[in-house]
Design a protein around this nucleic acid. Structure first.
Length: 542
RNA sequence: GCGCCAGUAGCUCAAUCGGAUAGAGCAACGGCCUUCUAAGCCGUAGGUUAGUGGUUCGAGUCCACUCUGGCGUACCA
């Protein structure tokens, strides 16, 4: 529908030249008495042309040539809105389109041939993933799905650091537990990782290597075993949410391959770094940032900035056209430095899209639970999945805009799983499957020969909503906003359920029944497509 | 102190980059199953969009200030 409007306005541009250098936007009015699509272009032009908007609207409508088999009427309303009403016959055509295009319907090829990298989760292997990581994981994977829908070849990447202080403490924590298992009296320091899982890892070490590791350094076998086991766990948890990574990128490789040195030399060559107080500083003030920052500490160790910059350089070198970083709000302050550094090295930072999502506040019985991996007072993602199921988790994190803070009441979530909107969507899908099973027994088959019979309000509204699917996908993908898909699907399910109660298939006149079957098959295809974008399953039965 | 994100129905959140009468779900109340799945449908109730001023044909959306919450503001990542 929208494409048709864009087409006829393109033609009109030759006639009314003032339309040429403005962007003509069409949107779906909230209230459908205002048409199927509407444009505010006349009001936008009013000031520029110094003419009343309604007069401009009239001129546009008079000069617009369109097919009356497609557009039923055009009205000018309010301050100068131009409202378009499509013919029921045209509206029903979407069924044929969906059935014919099938797999490609809703997909776009504008970025075909381009490569995208989506980096997310990126939690260091110091403990199980928490509910907070869950939001990041689901958001990242869904954004990746959306990018695939607009043509990108997408790599999902997990960046981690298995050196550094955190990991040393982890090794020490495991060793302390190990010694305790052997009956030794060792102090378990407050800074150690307090979680039960540390004891489990210590037990594994004991089983595997016996009792001879008392002299083994903490950052040897202890750390390595901890890392291995924790990573296995993380991967298993992510797998439960249907998330799999192409690459686990180890920060350490940046040192081994000389990438860090290379970046450092570049900065020196460009005179963008200097020595002060025994440390090396990056001249971020010259790159538009507030203050210079240390990139190599006086101890000789780099801060996170240097490897992060070098890491992004590798992404450019690996030929990505688009790089998406999914971060939690705690990274807010770090990425501008990194982007400035990358740009200073001559790379186009516009190719990097940073998505900062707000935190999830987890509450239980009205109390806020503060998350800390070290203090082990977190709710793990696994526990959440156990409690409510993977579909609910995926949907829950996908149904809200990433920029909004989320409140998650665990005790409420446990109780309310039956009322979760995800079931509403899945139920619509399962209901259609059920109808199709029943109809099969009756020997009834769908047909697109008499789609014109679909003219009641609930049929037309459902059809119009199906028309919008590609637009929604495109909008969601280009704006990195998965929750748009969730909202779209909720509306689609609502329209279907309404259709279901108002229109019967079995018992209707044969031609009408066949047309309605084609309608629900199309609806089911879209529901399934939408759910697959979100990573939620589409059950045949419930 | 400064920076970023937010504040919308009792609760959790939408609102198509400034559009028309601000919408859903949950919770509350009332109705609808001898016919394709009642995990559904219909209805009722619920709002000064935190507050004050401003910008214009038009503001939940933009600007300024105030209040409240979250996250930052490291030679931690």
């Amino acid at each position: 529908m929208k494409n048709y409007l864009l087409g006829i306005f393109d033609v009109l541009k030759n006639k009314l030249t003032y339309l040429q250098d403005v962007e003509i936007g069409f949107n779906v009015p909230q209230n459908n008495v205002n048409g199927d699509y509407s444009t505010n272009i006349a009001m936008m032009l009013a000031k520029k042309l110094k003419r009343p908007p309604r007069q401009i609207a009239e001129e546009i409508v008079e000069n617009l040539s369109y097919d009356s088999n497609i557009i039923e009427k055009i009205e000018i309303a309010g301050a100068g809105f131009i409202n378009f009403y499509f013919t029921p016959e045209f509206v029903t055509r979407i069924i044929k389109t969906i059935l014919e295009e099938k797999d490609t319907f809703g997909r776009f090829e504008i970025h075909t041939g381009k490569k995208a990298n989506v980096e997310f989760v990126s939690a260091n292997p110091t403990g199980p993933l928490t509910v907070g990581h869950g939001r990041n994981a689901v958001l990242g994977d869904t954004v990746a799905n959306l990018l695939e829908w607009i043509g990108y070849k997408v790599d999902r990447e997990y960046y981690f650091n298995n050196a550094g202080r955190q990991m040393r403490v982890l090794g020490e924590s495991v060793k302390a537990r190990y010694l305790q298992l052997l009956g030794e009296k060792v102090e378990f320091k407050e800074e150690y990782y307090q979680g039960e899982y540390i004891i489990d890892i210590a037990k594994t070490v004991l089983e595997k290597y016996g009792e001879n590791l008392k002299e083994e350094p903490a950052d040897g076998i202890f750390k390595d075993e901890a890392e291995r086991e924790i990573f296995e766990n993380i991967k298993r948890t992510l797998k439960r949410l249907n998330i799999e990574f192409n690459t686990f990128f180890n920060e350490k490789s940046l040192y081994d391959n000389g990438n860090i040195d290379k970046v450092l030399t570049e900065f020196k060559k460009k005179n963008l770094s200097y020595e002060k107080d025994g440390a090396t500083w990056l001249k971020l003030t010259e790159l538009g940032q507030e203050q210079d920052k240390v990139i190599i500490k006086s101890t000789g160790e780099p801060t996170y900035r240097l490897p992060d910059i070098a890491y992004h350089v590798t992404k450019f070198e690996r030929g990505y056209d688009l790089m998406v970083d999914i971060f939690g709000a705690d990274h807010m302050a770090t990425y501008p430095d990194v982007l400035a550094g990358v740009q200073a090295l001559g790379y186009d930072k516009e190719k990097i899209k940073v998505i900062i999502h707000q935190f999830v506040t987890v509450m239980e019985k009205g109390e806020v639970i503060k998350m800390s991996t070290r203090k082990a007072n977190f709710i793990t993602l696994d526990e959440l999945i156990d409690e409510v199921g993977h579909d609910v988790v995926r949907y829950f994190f996908n149904m809200r805009s990433y920029s909004s803070h989320m409140n998650f009441d665990l005790s409420l979530a446990k109780k309310q799983t039956d009322e979760n909107p995800v079931f509403y969507l899945q139920y619509a899908h399962a209901r259609i499957s059920s109808i199709l099973r029943t109809v099969k027994d009756e020997g009834l088959r769908s047909s697109t020969d008499n789609l014109d019979l679909l003219k009641t309000g609930s049929e037309q509204n459902l059809l119009k909503h199906l028309h919008r699917f590609p637009d929604e996908v495109f909008y969601a993908a280009t704006n990195f906003e998965p929750h748009k898909i969730a909202n779209y699907l909720e509306q689609l399910a609502a329209l279907f359920h309404k259709f279901y109660t108002e229109c019967r298939i079995i018992g209707s006149e044969k031609k009408l029944a066949e047309a309605r079957l084609a309608l629900i098959i199309s609806t089911q295809i879209i529901l399934k497509k939408g759910l697959s974008i979100l990573g939620v399953s589409a059950p045949e039965k419930m």
